[in-house]
């Protein structure tokens, strides 16, 4: 880490190799679109390189910091998209993206329902269950207090379980 802070590209490459798949996996499920996920991961890692000196070792784990940078970029991108695209068009676009994605991959029911959750609930669930962060780390990544993160996770769990149940009931 300190080698990367001295702008050592080899050190950065090895750090990147360690985190790339996990970061990409998270970004893919968060954005639900491979090209967006690639852009997000690339932008995140370029920002990490440019701001490496700002990372203080011992305060938070590097992976927590990495995910926090990614999350902030995701929120910024999302806000920009929402400003530029009218609401109804956005809904249509999201459905199109989802259909495209569903065709391209054998997506699980859970992934489909995950896409219907609000962004912060989706992020919290993915960080906790997919990325394996603790509630405290999820809070740090999302820029929330620990209690707020706990509450967000609880709402996300209930919402996802509820819609999963409805889906099953509809099929029956």
């Amino acid at each position: 880490m300190s080698a990367m802070q001295r702008q050592d590209k080899d050190a950065f490459a090895s750090l990147m190799a360690r985190h790339l798949d996990s970061l990409y996996g998270y970004a893919l499920r968060l954005t639900q679109e491979p090209s967006n996920a690639e852009d997000l991961v690339q932008e995140t890692l370029l920002r990490v390189w440019a701001n490496a000196k700002k990372y203080k070792q011992g305060t938070v784990a590097f992976s927590t910091w990495l995910h926090r940078v990614l999350h902030n970029l995701f929120v910024d991108q999302h806000r920009r998209q929402q400003r530029s695209v009218p609401e109804d068009t956005e809904a249509v676009r999201r459905d199109d993206v989802y259909d495209l994605y569903a065709q391209r991959q054998t997506k699980s029911q859970v992934d489909k329902l995950l896409w219907q959750l609000p962004d912060n609930q989706r992020a919290a669930l993915l960080l906790f269950n997919q990325q394996g962060f603790s509630t405290r780390e999820v809070a740090a990544i999302l820029g929330l207090g620990e209690r707020a993160a706990e509450s967000l996770l609880a709402r996300a769990r209930r919402a996802l379980r509820q819609s999963y149940k409805e889906q099953i009931d509809d099929k029956e």
């Binding site: 490459a13 990147m16 190799a17 790339l20 798949d21 970061l23 990409y24 996996g25 893919l28 499920r29 491979p34 690639e38 991961v41 690339q42 890692l45 370029l46 699980s108 029911q109 859970v110 992934d111 995950l114 669930l125 993915l126 269950n129 997919q130 394996g132 769990r157 996802l160 379980r161 999963y164």
Partner: peptide
């Protein structure tokens, strides 16, 4: 749900690291 969320392992595209 939790198992489904946890088990999906994804590999980043091979060119991504070089591109970055």
């Amino acid at each position: 749900i939790e198992q489904e969320l946890a088990t999906r392992a994804t590999q980043a595209p091979a060119t991504l690291a070089a591109q970055i």
